[in-house]
Design a protein around this nucleic acid. Structure first.
Lengths: 353, 353
DNA sequence: TTGTAAGCGTTATCAA
DNA sequence: TTGATAACGCTTACAA
């Protein structure tokens, strides 16, 4: 037998490999591999020897080699939206992580955040890092990226929004009904001149919520055409911009429905700077239920999203798909939001006292 | 020549490999590899043929195989603290990402977030996924993890805090001086009864800032022993808890220095709920400069951290180390913070008018 | 139940 | 400058 000649770069710090363990335990590498991955198929005494050697040598399987050979990395990519609000998403990420980790999967986070990030990095990540799956979190996927994401042949699950153009298993909030809750709340307080501060135009959540808003007006015999709609982008600055528009109106609305809490905060800041007061001069409802709404002055009436459930339901859908279970592409899990009434809204009557 | 028998699992979707390209271009796989990684070492005409084939077949090198062979993944792990505040960290992550991405590195984010995450996942990530480096972001590393992180033989850089016990290249804010700015600002407004709302006990930033706070009192002939220190944890809830403690005091301070913006927000919420007003009854200074401070009512006086610079400086340190440059372990880059005076602080005299 | 050995897709050494 | 080929460390089909 020929002595194997070492080729390639010299390993600076030779890690413990499976053959070291095999040698130490007096078995073959195959047995070590089996003892670790498939304990039932290895006789107890050998298994014990292997485990002892593993512990003694501090062996950890090289995941890169495992991935190359087995064709699966046990890594799930979570796509998060640009400028995502951690106040909102961290809970979701956390619940996804818990669900995946307890099933042996690692999650890595990819964002379309920076200007330099046109998705090419992620594309290559998807194609070349042997990802096992992708969870899309409230993202609109650029078409360039869509191509690669959906062609990679790995399961994709969407959470918090539907991905336009592709039918994939999805977990969403009952966005439309929640917007109904927002508007009905204001109307029940006597407000009939309403304004709508929109999220990113065309965005799934935005479309759903605006639809609920309009339907509620119609149901209450208010002409939706007369309710101003401000085009925002979910962020605080656009809420402040909405306030500027609001302030210039001759016949100002008395109730404002916002598509995010951040915009509600920005809006209230804007009208406060102009000497108006919330809720005395105008009632404002937010959406999401981020922690800040409970600390802001005034505390903000909003829709609480079941973040943990959204995340874990999405992760479980992914795990099912990874387990080979054929999850129908039209699977929709719809979770209910909840109206939290706080101090940014008050009845119109009270105001005129 | 023997026909190679296909062993192992059948590949469902055979991706384009380097040998497909080699075949199409009429060269060897070695030449393809060189044409891509080391263009100068390949004759122009062959290189052109290779590139054409790459483009035509849509070839993307399998990074897993590359990593296994080359021993480097071009992946950097960013360790983020539990419950990290995105409002603050997203800018830092973004600048790190930009710096790394433009040098061919991918960043992955690992957090010590969840209760189930005791660091074992990350340990295995470090050891088994062939990471090239670790950037520790404002983290206190659990000792269990420290072992693996520092023994992995890859460069580690710390950003926003020093890692206790190990000397590694670090980028930090001049925390102590910033705390001096906070305290001096209040003192210059006539406040001499000051309270300090602390971050996590023993935490690097906390220690530095408290030191600056105490020094400023001493320099102004105020006995630091008489200034109450509330033990918080950087988060909003603990700010509200600090307010409850404050409210019970017989002789209430008139100025409050907080170790984070979130605690400042929580504190103001707490005293507002009790019928007090900020800044009329008490002046409050935050720390970090998150966007919310500019939207909260009142807007909050705080310390602005140079987040982009913190991130990119840290990333550049990492890139230097990856390039083989021996970065001294005692490297310290200290960046200056800036006091932003807003409306949560006012002069004590004005109050007594 | 166990061992042998092929092969995952790349890079890098060596010889030409 | 190029090609043949040996690893990288692991899993797994197959034979024993």
């Amino acid at each position: 037998m020929e002595k194997p000649v070492r080729r390639g770069r010299a390993t600076e710090k030779t890690a413990v490999t499976i053959s070291d363990v095999a040698k130490a335990a007096g078995v073959s590498t195959a047995t070590v591999s089996r003892a670790l991955a498939n304990p039932a198929h290895v006789r107890a005494d050998k298994r014990a020897k292997v485990l002892e050697a593993v512990a003694r040598l501090g062996y950890a399987p090289n995941e890169v080699a495992r991935t190359l050979r087995a064709g699966s990395s046990r890594m799930i990519l979570i796509l998060v939206p640009p400028h995502y609000n951690t106040s909102f998403f961290s809970t979701i990420l956390d619940s996804i992580h818990n669900e995946l980790a307890s099933n042996g999967y690692t999650m890595i986070i990819g964002s379309l955040e920076s200007p330099t990030e046109d998705g090419r990095n992620l594309t290559s990540l998807v194609f070349t890092r042997q990802l096992d799956g992708i969870i899309v979190l409230a993202c609109t996927i650029p078409s360039r990226l869509q191509h690669s994401v959906f062609d990679a042949g790995i399961p994709v699950v969407s959470v918090c929004a539907e991905v336009g153009g592709h039918s994939i298993p999805t977990v969403v909030l009952n966005d439309e009904e929640c917007a109904v809750l927002q508007a009905e709340h204001l109307i029940s307080l006597g407000h009939r001149k309403l304004m709508y501060v929109a999220g990113i135009d065309g965005d799934y959540n935005e479309v759903q919520r605006y639809s609920g808003f309009r339907k509620t007006l119609v149901a209450n015999r208010i002409d939706p055409q007369l309710a101003p709609r401000f085009q925002g982008d979910y962020r605080m600055q656009s809420g402040a911009a909405a306030a500027r528009t609001f302030l210039e109106m001759a016949d100002r609305p008395t109730g404002v429905v916002c598509c995010s809490d951040e915009m509600a905060i920005g809006f209230i800041r804007g009208i406060t700077d102009a000497g108006l007061s919330c809720p005395r001069d105008v009632s404002v409802v937010g959406f999401d239920g981020i922690e800040y709404t409970d600390y802001f002055e005034p505390t903000i009436t909003t829709i609480r999203q079941p973040r943990s459930d959204l995340g874990s339901s999405g992760a479980r859908l992914m795990l099912r798909a990874l387990a080979g279970d054929k999850v129908p592409t039209d699977t929709r899990i719809v979770l209910p939001g909840e109206l939290l009434v706080r101090r940014s809204t008050m009845s119109l009557e009270t105001e005129s006292v």
